[in-house]
C-alpha cells in the first residue's frame, strides 16, 4: 500500500528514532534493578545496625545509674571523711582549752620555764594541725565538682539515648549528620564541659577582673 508523503516521512522518522527509544528503557530497567539491589543491601545493613544501636540505647540508662551511684558514693565518702575531720577539730578545741589551763596552772605554780615552753610548743603544733584539717575540708570540695560533671554527663546520656532511639525508629545512620548538627541540651552540656576545661578562670584571674570593677 502506498503511503502518503507525510505518513512515509513520519515512518522514516520513527525508524530513525527506534534505536534511541530502546536504549533508555534498558538503561532505566538497569538503574531500577541496581536501585532495588542497593535498597535490599541497605535494608539488610540497616537491620544489622538497628540491633546494636537498640542494645546501646538500652545500656545508656544503666550507664546513667552507674554515674548517679558514683555521685552518691563520692558524696557519702566525703561526708564520712568530713565527720572524722570535724571530730578531730572538736577534739582539738577541747585539748587546746586543757593546754591553756595547764599553761596557766604551770605559770601559777612557778614551775621551770622550759616545761611551760614545751606545753606552748604542743599548742602551736596543735594549731598547725588545725590548719591542715581545714585544708582537708576544703580539698573535699572536689566532690562538688565531680557531682556537677556527673549531672551534666547524665543529661548528655539522656539526650544521646533519645537520639539513638530515634535512629532505631527511622533507620537513621543517615541521620547522623542531622544529629550532629542538632543544638540540643546534650550539645550545650558538652560545650559547657569543654568550656570549663579550656577557659575556666583561676582565682587570680577572677581577682584581676574584680579589681577592674573596683573590688579591692
Amino acid at each position: 500500500m502506498a503511503q502518503s508523503r507525510p505518513a512515509a516521512k513520519a515512518k522514516d522518522a520513527m525508524d530513525d528514532e527506534e534505536p534511541t527509544e530502546v536504549a533508555p528503557d534498558t538503561k532505566l530497567y538497569e538503574e531500577l534493578g541496581e536501585l532495588a539491589r542497593f535498597i535490599d543491601t541497605t535494608m539488610k545493613t540497616l537491620s544489622e545496625f538497628s540491633v546494636p544501636v537498640s542494645a546501646s540505647s538500652e545500656q545508656l540508662p544503666q550507664a546513667q545509674t552507674h554515674l548517679l551511684n558514683l555521685k552518691t558514693q563520692t558524696e557519702q565518702g566525703t561526708h564520712r571523711v568530713m565527720m572524722e575531720v570535724e571530730s578531730i577539730q572538736d577534739n582539738h578545741v577541747h585539748v587546746g582549752k586543757m593546754l591553756k589551763e595547764l599553761t596557766h596552772a604551770l605559770q601559777q605554780a612557778n614551775v621551770a620555764p622550759n616545761l611551760i615552753q614545751q606545753v606552748q610548743k604542743i599548742t602551736q603544733d596543735l594549731n598547725k594541725d588545725d590548719k591542715r584539717l581545714l585544708d582537708i575540708m576544703t580539698a573535699l570540695s572536689f566532690q562538688d565538682l565531680v557531682a556537677q560533671s556527673v549531672n551534666k554527663l547524665v543529661t548528655i546520656l539522656d539526650e544521646v539515648e533519645h537520639k539513638l532511639l530515634q535512629l532505631v525508629v527511622v533507620f537513621g545512620p543517615y541521620q547522623k549528620q542531622a544529629a550532629k548538627n542538632d543544638q540540643g541540651k546534650a550539645n550545650e552540656m558538652l560545650k559547657q564541659l569543654e568550656a570549663t576545661k579550656n577557659t575556666s578562670m583561676n582565682q587570680d584571674l577572677a581577682d584581676e577582673i574584680l579589681k577592674q570593677f573596683g573590688f579591692n
Binding site: L134, D135, M137, S141, F142, L145, S200, N202, Q203, A206
Partner: peptide, 8 residues
C-alpha cells in the same frame, strides 16, 4: 566572687 576549688 570565689572560684571553686578554693582555699579557706
Amino acid at each position: 566572687y570565689v572560684v571553686k576549688p578554693f582555699t579557706a
